[in-house]
Amino acid sequence: MDELEIILKLARQARRETPPPLRVTAAVLEAIRVPQPVLPIRTLAFLAVAAEAAAVLVLVLAVQAWTRSVDPLTLLYPSLEASLR
């Protein structure tokens, strides 16, 4: 018999154990009767639209900034303007 067989035998014996009696019903009922904070659907919809608009704005600005930083032609514009002057 190895160590794992001993542990398995102990666990089989432990299956017959019953936990001490617990009183939970009253506490559960009390917890579920507490009114849950509920945001009205209009508030949620407004927040969702505002968050989406902000996300789109950030995306547009990020794309613009990225395009400007990687386009070599944009680097020419300041020198072109200076030579025309």
Partner: peptide
């Protein structure tokens, strides 16, 4: 409770876990 007794052998703790399960 019998299942959660395997997770903690502390009576109060077990009671809390049982409550949490039902909530």
């Amino acid at each position: 409770a019998s299942l959660l007794w395997r997770f903690t052998r502390d009576r109060l703790c077990c009671e809390e876990l049982v409550q949490e399960t039902f909530v």
